[in-house]
Amino acid sequence: MPKTNQTRVSQGKNGQYKVTIPKAFADSLDLDGRTVEWNLASASKLTMEVVEDDE
């Protein structure tokens, strides 16, 4: 799995921003269909955490 990767952020017509998560990262975190939480860690850093379902 890559230790770092760069992707480009784009803005959709509805004003929402979109970012693509590298496949290796998403696969290693088993992200397909999961809910994630985004947080602003600093002026130049976002964090993403998988939210555990209560099922």
Rank of each mutant, 00 (worst) to 15 (best):
L29E: 08
V51D: 01
D54P: 10
V36E: 06
W38T: 06
K23Y: 04
W38D: 11
S44G: 04
M48I: 11
S44K: 14
S44M: 00
P2K: 13
G15H: 02
T47P: 13
P22H: 02
D54F: 07
E37A: 06
V51H: 01
Y17S: 04
E55V: 04
T20H: 15
G15S: 00
Q16F: 06
E55R: 07
M1H: 05
V19H: 07
F25Q: 15
I21G: 06
S42L: 00
K45T: 03
D54K: 02
G15Q: 03
P2L: 14
P22N: 08
G33D: 06
R34F: 09
K45W: 01
T4S: 15
L31M: 10
T7H: 06
G12Y: 06
N14E: 06
G33W: 02
K3L: 12
M1T: 15
A41G: 00
T4A: 12
T20L: 14
N14W: 11
A26M: 09
Q6A: 10
Q16V: 14
R8V: 11
L46W: 14
K45E: 09
M1L: 09
M48Y: 03
I21F: 01
A41Q: 05
S28R: 04
V9N: 11
K3P: 08
D30E: 08
Q16R: 15
D27Q: 15
E55I: 01
P2Y: 10
G12D: 10
L29Y: 13
K3Y: 15
R8G: 03
E37M: 08
W38K: 01
G12P: 03
M48F: 02
T35C: 14
Q11V: 10
T20Q: 07
D30W: 01
G33P: 04
Y17M: 07
K18P: 01
I21M: 08
Q11T: 07
S42F: 01
Y17A: 03
L40H: 00
S28C: 07
T47D: 13
D27F: 05
A24F: 10
E37S: 09
G33F: 04
P22C: 06
E52V: 00
T4Y: 12
D30F: 06
G15P: 05
F25N: 13
I21V: 07
A41W: 03
D27C: 08
K3A: 11
D30G: 13
Q11L: 07
G15N: 00
V9H: 11
D54Y: 09
T47K: 14
P22G: 02
L40C: 02
Q6G: 11
V51A: 01
S10I: 03
D53K: 01
V9E: 13
W38L: 15
D54L: 05
D30L: 05
S44Q: 04
F25W: 08
D32T: 14
E37F: 05
E49I: 09
V19P: 02
V36K: 09
E52K: 01
V36D: 04
Q11W: 14
M1R: 08
N14K: 09
G15Y: 00
L31S: 03
